[in-house]
Design a protein around this nucleic acid. Sequence first.
DNA 1: GCCGTTTTCGGCCCGACTGTTTTCAGTCG
Length: 575
Amino acid sequence: MTNVEIARIFSEIADILEIKEENPFKVRAYRKVTQLLESLPQEIEEIYKKGELYKLPGVGQSIAEKITEIIETGRLKYHQKLKEGVPPGLLEMLRIPDMGPKTVALVYKKLGISTLKELEKAAREKKLRNVYGLGPKTEENILKGMKLVKERKERIPLHEALVLAEDIVKKLQEAGIVERIAYCGSVRRRRETIGDVDILATSPHPARVMDIFTSLPRVEEVLAKGSTKSSILVGEGRQVDLRVVEQESFGAALHYFTGSKAHNIRIRELGVRKGLKINEYGVFVKKGEKEERIGGREEEDIFQSVGLPYIPPELREDWGEVEAAQRGELPRLVRMEEIKGDLHIHTMWSDGANTVREVAIAAREKGYEYIGISDHSQSLKVAGGVSKDSFFQRIREIRAVDEEMPEIKVLAGTEVDILPDGTLDYPDEFLRELDVVIASVHSNFKQEEESMTKRIMKAMENPFVDIIGHPTGRLLGEREAYRINMEKLLHHAAKTGTAMEINAYPDRMDLKDTHVRMAKDMGVKLVIGTDAHHLLQLEWIKYGVWVARRGWLESKDVLNTLDFPDFFTRLKKRS
DNA sequence: GCCGTTTTCGGCCCGACTGTTTTCAGTCG
């Protein structure tokens, strides 16, 4: 049973308890463990085997016993018993916006409605308004919400959300009446997928900002419009929230709207213990009857008030960053400017759009010290893989460009296919001629976990393979990762000295953040590469750096932050 | 249900907007 599957059980327990109007703090305890499981950087089963469940924050005796029961028996009696008491349709109703546990329980008790169909029918026939507390507007919103649930993509990849967020920020800036403005939420935390986009601004004319925001050309519907907060729907049911606050509150609001929710709760709890109240308007201390603001203009004020150093947004997931900050052990996260080279670049020799020379010039302008030209290998016909016949010709061209440009080291590389049996798509006599070898899986994605894991482990054993490219093969929103045992893979990477790639291609972001953190903890070498197929895509390195930062990496964990000679020495296994 | 340099019991983050009310509960983030 995976973490996510176990999380779903606890989430359902929380939903049911809420509908049954159980103790809200009990509900919160189950929600908390759900979040914990969804973002845990390792399998809960491993922690269970070590007998360390009780060490997890938010896991006490009762929940530890429940996790144990699920792992040992594959089910949870408590959960099944709860489910018997509640029609499954009620849980589905909770997914409709504006339908919370109270409303669900209300229509169930008063009208006996227990399925989505019955709910839709009652709303259409205007029967909901007969219930005290519900009205015509509620009927309308429920019908709208049901439509939305059907149409809406759950989450969109970071790069799509980033384009949206940056565009709206720009439009509001162009209106000329905002002072400070920033996007917040999971976009700012650089999560790989995004639900809603959150934007924060200060302005002397909040009402006018709201008018402009709610009448932007891309607005499909205005969900809410107030004096300080508005929400709109744009394409594909994507929601964008805007908050406007006073300048003196900007930092507090930025922290609050950046989240994560779990992180915010931790910080506010620390505040409570110090006798402080922290909200989106600032940090306040009680002075007799009055409250006095002691900070909030800058985000740093919030952390300072609870005695912590600044925690970068990418770490704010309650994955242990608060504890690390308290111990003074926050990582010094790797920064974009520290990247010295990009090893994963395609050219016209395979399916790239530019020549080796064009790529080298672009990389030199970017200030890189070295790049690796890593075209596809012979079997990958769809991507114009380099045949054995042109293999050496390509190397000669790369060497020539390298000679021509003393400011940048241009390495002859390849992205060689790992064939289904784990052998490589070029013989060793060919690979030994190259400076850098990335090995990747591009075929037979549907192998069983064991054979896929062995396949990649075998590739790692080849002495010429330096890096495993996009190690899980996922395409965000398109293709699932192939089935592999990541823990085994990382162990083998550490053992063989093979580096794992953080592929920065925005649809990949592969390894992902939790795997990166696992890799770091296991002493695996990591390399960030763009997989660029066009020189403009060299800019995508930032997505890889963000993943690295979310995986707690420092520059010393990332090989391509090193100067060339050091980088090259560390990369090669046998040196 | 969890948790403890104020506590093993009594707390548990905080506020905006909407809809249905006539002062507020529910939902959301």
